Each structure stands twice: as C-alpha cells, then as structure tokens.
Deep mutational scan, measured.
Amino acid sequence: SKDTIRINGIDIDVKDLHEEWKRLVEEALKRGDEELAIELLERALKE
C-alpha cells in the first residue's frame, strides 16, 4: 500500500491511516467517487 493517495490531483499523506480506511478510500477512488473518498478521509483523520 502506498503512503499517499491522489484525490483531485492532490497527493494526501495517508501513511498514518489505518489500513482499513486506506482500502475504503482506494475503493471509492476506483469507482470514481472522489466525494466519498474525501468524506472517508476526513472521517479517518478524525479518529
């Protein structure tokens, strides 16, 4: 798994994120759902 995830052309540092969150965000991006990916990231970062 990578340490960054690219959303809207912005590389976001996710190395401190739990693997499960990372996977969910990557799944959302694979489906092209950037809005969901951002929402998941925000939730993950609050934890």
Rank of each mutant, 00 (worst) to 15 (best):
L17K: 01
E27G: 05
E34S: 13
L36A: 11
G32P: 01
H18I: 09
R31L: 09
A44E: 01
L17P: 01
N8D: 06
K2F: 14
R31P: 00
L41H: 01
D11Q: 06
S1Y: 10
K46V: 08
I38L: 13
I38R: 12
S1F: 11
D11P: 05
D16S: 12
L17G: 01
V25W: 04
G9M: 04
T4A: 05
L36R: 08
A37L: 05
L36H: 08
L45S: 07
G9W: 04
R31T: 09
D3I: 08
E20V: 14
L40V: 04
R43D: 03
L36P: 00
S1G: 12
V25R: 00
W21L: 09
K22Q: 05
W21T: 13
I12P: 00
L17R: 01
W21S: 04
K15N: 09
E39Y: 15
K46E: 09
R6I: 08
L24N: 02
L36D: 04
R43M: 12
L41C: 02
E34I: 12
K22M: 10
K46S: 12
V25T: 01
E26C: 09
K22Y: 08
E20C: 06
R31W: 11
K46W: 09
I38M: 15
T4E: 04
K15Q: 10
L29G: 00
L36E: 07
E19W: 15
K30T: 11
N8V: 03
I7L: 08
R6F: 07
R23G: 05
I10E: 09
D11W: 08
S1L: 14
G9S: 05
I5R: 02
E42S: 11
R31E: 08
A28D: 00
E39D: 07
D3Q: 07
V25Q: 00
E39N: 12
L45K: 13
L40R: 02
R31M: 13
E39C: 15
I10Q: 10
D33Y: 06
L24Y: 03
E26A: 14
D13N: 14
L29F: 05
H18A: 15
L45A: 10
K15C: 03
L17A: 02
E34F: 11
A37N: 00
R43S: 06
D3N: 10
G32W: 03
V25F: 05
K46F: 09
L40S: 01
I5A: 02
D33T: 02
I38K: 13
E42W: 12
E42H: 12
L36G: 11
R43L: 10
E35Y: 11
E47P: 06
D16L: 11
E34W: 11
K15H: 11
H18Q: 10
K46Q: 12
A44I: 04
D11T: 08
S1K: 10
I7D: 01
L17M: 08
E27T: 05
W21I: 10
K22P: 01
G32K: 04
R23A: 07
K30I: 12
E19D: 10
E34A: 12
A44Y: 13
A28H: 02
D3Y: 01
L41S: 01
L24I: 06
L45M: 11
G9T: 02
R23E: 05
D33K: 06
D33I: 03
R6N: 11
T4F: 13
G32L: 04
V25C: 02
G9D: 05
E35L: 14
N8G: 12
D3A: 06
A28P: 00
E19C: 12
E42F: 13
A37H: 00
G32A: 03
L41W: 06
S1D: 12
G9N: 06
L41V: 07
R23D: 03
I7K: 01
E47C: 14
E26I: 15
R43H: 07
N8F: 08
I5K: 02
R23F: 06
K2L: 14
I7P: 01
H18M: 09
A28T: 03
W21V: 15
A28S: 03
E26T: 14
I38T: 08
W21Y: 10
E27K: 04
E35M: 13
E39L: 15
E34Y: 11
K22E: 01
H18K: 11
E47I: 08
K15F: 09
L29M: 08
L45P: 03
D11K: 05
K30D: 10
G32I: 01
L40H: 02
L24Q: 10
R31D: 08
I12K: 04
I38A: 11
E19A: 12
R31Y: 08
I38Q: 12
D11H: 05
G9K: 03
R43N: 06
V25S: 00
E39I: 14
R6S: 11
A37C: 02
E47M: 11
E20A: 14
E42L: 15
L36N: 05
K30E: 13
L41Y: 09
K15A: 12
S1M: 12
I5S: 01
A37Q: 00
G32S: 02
H18D: 12
E26S: 12
R23S: 06
W21F: 06
H18T: 14
